[in-house]
Each structure stands twice: as C-alpha cells, then as structure tokens.
Design a protein around this nucleic acid. Structure first.
Lengths: 108, 108
DNA sequence: AAATTATTTCTACTTTGTAGAAATTATCAT
DNA sequence: ATGATAATTTCTACAAAGTAGAAATAATTT
C-alpha cells in the first residue's frame, strides 16, 4: 500500500476530526485553519474525489435544508480503508519524528 | 512557503539523521528502512535534484576514493532553508497529530 | 585493454496538486 | 411567477511531484 500524500492525510484527518457537517466548506475551513494557508476550492474537491475513487472516503448528497438556498451539500466520511491508511501514516510519523529534537531550537 | 511533500520530508530528514556518507545509496537505504517500501533509484535522485534547485539541499562530488571503482559519490547536505522547511512540517505534524489517539486501537 | 563495479544522470510517463470559472439548485424579493 | 441572489459543487486545464529503470560515467581489477 502506498502512503498517503500530505493533502490526503490532511483531508482524511479532517474527516476524522470534524464532527459537524463534514462537507466541502467545513472541510476547507478545517484544513485552512490547521495549516494557516489558503486552499483553493479545487484543492479540496479534486483530492476528495480521488480519495473517493480509491475507496478511502464515501460521500452522499444531503436533501435540501430549510436554510438559505444553493446546491445541496455533499457530506463525506472516511471509510475503513481510509482509516487504515491513516493508521499507516501515524505509525510512520512516529518512526520518523518521535526521536527528533524540537527543531525550532536547533541551528544548522 | 509551501509545505514539504512526503518524499521531500523523508529525504530532508534522512539528511538530518544520516551521519556517515550521505550519498544516494545510503539515503536510499535510509528511506527504504524507515518506510519498509521499495524506492526506485529515480525516486531518490529526482526529488533530491528538485530539492537542490529549490535551495533546500546542497551537494558536491567526492574525489575518487581508494575503494572499488565506479563513478564518484555525490554527497548531499541540508541547507538552512531546508531545515526551516523541516521545522514547519514538524510544527504542523504536532498540530495535526499530538491530540490524536492511537489509531491502531480505534475502530470506525 | 577488456571486464566489472558503483554510482549517478537522464528521460519519459503517471499521479497528484491547484486555481478558479461555470453550472446547479435552492431561497428571497418584487 | 420571475428574476436576483446565494451556497455549493462540478469540471477542466495546467503545473508540480512521484516513479521506474535504462544509459552513461568513471574508477578498479584481470
């Protein structure tokens, strides 16, 4: 099995952590907040779609809500395979980083 | 600044951690050992080259050694910019993972 | 001088990342 | 009802990164 890319890791983790309304806008907010960087719309949906074709996430459309108009939301959730992939990066991250000192204090 | 990709992270970390002879073969061994996966030759050198053009690593050729023949080794080292990039992923990784439970025990 | 060896260099192709315009579908205002 | 407005997704095109391995290089050994 291949390792998740950074974006895939971020998105799956978002799906793991977001409790309310895991749809495009909230997912994008989550990754923007956590990374402190701008994420275009495509940078969210395109990788999510690809994760779906790999079977790492599943999605479904909500019915219309009594809120403001617009297209209906697509909710995403992580699958068992997605979780397994996340387990693998967690393990690799430990291997890689657990023995590392805090680099913010290190000089070259 | 953009985040390092997974491969870039692995390679820079390798350069941080490898103490002896940080050249292609040893770098490849390091990442293979740590990831437990096969890494083609190109999967090492091409990203290293690209890291060099970004200024994250520097390299130089060794003179001929009194060992067995062959082309001379190219030694790599991380630069200050590379280290800074590594600091950033370290920080983001903490933000992302420090509050996560051990997923190996978690069911969906 | 030919064979062998260690290593790097190069190239072509696949996959992933990224940006944003266009399309869709709902509600609101008149 | 109809048009304006709003929220969201879908789509597309291009840029960047990942990947595999054959070919080139340059040293030593026979």
């Amino acid at each position: 099995m291949k390792f998740l890319s950074r974006a895939e890791e971020l998105l799956l983790l978002a799906l793991w952590k977001i409790t309310e309304e895991p749809y495009g806008v909230n997912i994008r907010k989550f990754v923007s907040d956590i990374t402190g960087k701008y994420w275009s719309i495509g940078a969210i949906y395109v990788p999510l779609d690809r994760l779906e074709s790999k079977g790492y996430v599943q999605s479904y459309l909500s019915g219309p809500t009594p809120e403001r108009g617009g297209k209906s939301k697509r909710y995403y959730k992580i699958t068992e395979d997605g979780l397994e992939a996340l387990r693998e990066v967690q393990k690799m991250n430990s291997t890689l980083w657990d023995d590392m000192p805090d680099l913010s204090t290190k000089k070259l």
